[in-house]
Design a binder for these strands. Structure first.
Length: 235
DNA sequence: AAGCATCCCAACCGCCTTCAG
DNA sequence: CCTGAAGGCGGTTGGGATGCT
């Protein structure tokens, strides 16, 4: 049995937002902050589903959004993050300040896919398009992420749990990714999950992974729910 | 100028996870 | 522990914008 609808659909608007609706939503959130999305529409005088309000705010109305074209640096960063994370758009977006997961997803599907294809690279596997046998015998990290999700891509902090093959797409990358679980409750000690590269023979992260230069950088994902700690182990 | 095709992106849908009761 | 509500995420779609013939 599916979940009940998030709101009373019979009395909600759908489709494009009007200027007035935007104004109401912005004014309400400025006054009260982001609170309970379910109750927000009624409180703000909007005939919208709470989820719709949340999406509109996060993807379009938030003041910290960076609108406009993506830079070449952002393009390359997105490609590299996608090769590591697969279609984890919210995680990728969290690495690019002012960008949203929806924007990332759209941009990937409309621009970057094409860009990679024109380079002869499979946008799903990040391997050369004519490398069919490789594609079959070696699951990329992206597809691995899709198929096995956290089971493989996210290992625990125990180095012994490393599994071969996960990071084949970036064999010389020595990367540790630590994901802190949500801090909803401040009293809780956040558990940590980390990603470690398998092949640490090469000590340099020199194949363009400049974004990993800093030894420890914390990023806040868009939702502020998850924190990720990327570390390049470049010793 | 008109009609059609394609592109782009905002918004929706449905599923999953989290958490409170 | 179980259940349902709510938030969050990724996939998909509708329709306006743009390009092409």
């Amino acid at each position: 049995m599916g979940r009940s609808p998030c709101c009373e659909k019979a009395h909600t608007n759908k489709g494009a937002w009007t200027k007035e609706e935007d104004d109401r939503l912005v004014a309400y959130i400025r006054a009260h902050g982001e609170g309970c999305w379910r109750s927000l529409p009624k409180a703000a005088g909007l005939l919208r589903c709470g989820k719709s309000c949340r999406l509109r705010w996060i993807n379009y109305l938030r003041p910290d959004l960076k609108r406009g074209n993506f830079t070449e640096e952002e393009d390359e960063l997105i490609i590299k993050l996608h090769s590591l994370l697969g279609n984890k758009w919210s995680l990728i977006a969290g690495r690019l300040p002012g960008r949203t997961d929806n924007e990332m997803k759209n941009y990937w599907n409309t621009h970057i896919r094409r860009k990679l294809l024109s380079r002869g690279i499979d946008p799903t596997t990040h391997r050369p398009l004519n490398d069919a046998s490789q594609n079959q015998s070696h699951a990329s990290s992206a597809s691995a992420a899709k198929q096995h999700d956290s089971e493989i891509l996210i290992t625990d902090t125990d180095a012994n749990s490393k599994r071969p093959g996960v990071f084949e797409v970036c064999p010389d990358l020595n990367l540790e990714l630590t994901i802190s679980l949500p801090h909803h409750h401040q009293h809780q000690q956040p558990d940590q999950i980390s990603l470690k590269s398998i092949n640490s023979e090469s000590s340099t992260a020199g194949d363009g992974f400049d974004f990993l230069e800093s030894k420890s950088s914390v990023l806040d994902c868009r939702s502020s729910v998850t924190q990720i700690d990327w570390r390049a182990l470049t010793e």
